[in-house]
Design a protein around this nucleic acid. Structure first.
Length: 308
DNA sequence: CACCATGTTCCTTG
DNA sequence: CCAAGGAACATGGT
């Protein structure tokens, strides 16, 4: 669920619900989620604190708090692989994997995480190591070129390095490389200048499109039929077709490339799946070669804002 | 049962 | 010291 676009969408939706509300009680069901903050420190700091803002940095959520002592504090959140954050009526029982429950009066703020890889902590030093925000101005071609440097590592693996650029994860790394028509296996140092420019643009467009998707399409906000303010990433019933076309290569092994029809391939890099089109992203594909493409499909891709 | 999973960190090896 | 690869974390879905 959570890469930069998902965290951005969550930030936009959750922020207004939290703003101005006071934390009245704290229940920590999995202390691991707070690390390295202790339960005692966490609880003492947050009780009586008021939410004053919600921001995103990379895949992290930054909750701005006004403490009851008068000071301010940033609470850092990360969803890991399976984390979810939402409000639930205080009278409802918390879900099985609720790691932290913050009572805000009539509602509880729930941090649920089945695998407990996520974080909700008072220690914010993790964000210091992050590279530029891909959607902001300082993510330039020059910055990307410098970050790739002379690394011989495959470009797909490099894109997952959060000090290179913050917020790209396993899904959008494959998607951005497809959009830029660059092979995931190409050594980072071997990208030419125009390939770097193409990749930067592809990363930005891929992420912006995903944000727009999540902001535009009717998301499933309440699993049950009570208006519980729960934010689910699954689509509301009836939106399946749109969802189906969202991704070009991720999790599409064996299915036809939406541009040329060649079966999408899955490979493993750094113990994680990479998906790509072996024709559109040919390793030595440095001259243009469009004759095998289906013009009708190409039209559709172009209308979605693909770079070609 | 086997394998896979949207992330990060730590350990080992070279 | 750095780069690269792999395991670990913990649970659920197919």
């Amino acid at each position: 669920m959570p890469e930069l676009p998902e965290v951005e969408i969550l930030t936009r939706h959750l922020g207004p619900w939290l703003n101005g509300r006071t934390i009245r009680a704290i229940a920590v069901r999995r202390a691991k989620i707070l690390e390295p903050t202790s339960i005692v420190h966490f609880t003492r700091t947050l009780r009586g604190a008021k939410f004053s803002g919600l921001r995103r940095r990379g895949k992290y959520l930054l909750f701005d708090l006004r403490l009851k002592t008068g000071g301010t504090q940033t609470l850092l959140g990360h969803l890991g692989m399976t984390g979810r954050m939402y409000l639930l009526p205080a009278k409802a029982p918390p879900p099985k994997h609720a790691a932290v429950v913050l009572n805000l009066g009539a509602d509880n703020f729930i941090f649920e995480d089945a695998r407990y890889f996520g974080r909700l902590t008072l220690d914010t030093k993790a964000i210091e190591k992050l590279g530029p925000e891909p959607l902001e101005k300082n993510f330039t071609n020059l910055a990307l070129a410098a970050a790739l440097g002379r690394s011989s590592q495959a470009i797909k693996i490099k894109l997952l390095d959060q000090s290179l650029v913050a917020g790209v994860g396993n899904i959008y790394a494959s998607e951005a490389l497809f959009r830029a028509r660059i092979s995931p296996c190409l050594a980072a140092c071997r990208l030419q200048r125009r390939e770097i420019a193409s990749l930067r643009s592809a990363i930005r467009k891929t992420l912006m499109e995903a944000i727009r998707f999540g902001s535009t399409v009717p998301l499933n906000f309440s699993k049950g039929d009570h208006g519980d303010k729960i934010f689910y990433y699954g689509l509301a019933p009836g939106a399946e077709n749109y969802y189906d076309e969202r991704l070009m290569v991720y999790d599409r092994a064996g299915k036809p490339c939406r541009l040329c029809g060649t079966p999408i391939r899955r490979i493993v890099q750094a113990a994680r799946s990479t998906f790509f089109c072996p024709l559109c992203q040919k390793l030595d594909f440095r001259a243009s070669n469009l004759e095998n493409r289906n013009p009708r499909l190409q039209n559709r891709i172009d209308s979605k804002g693909c770079d070609l």
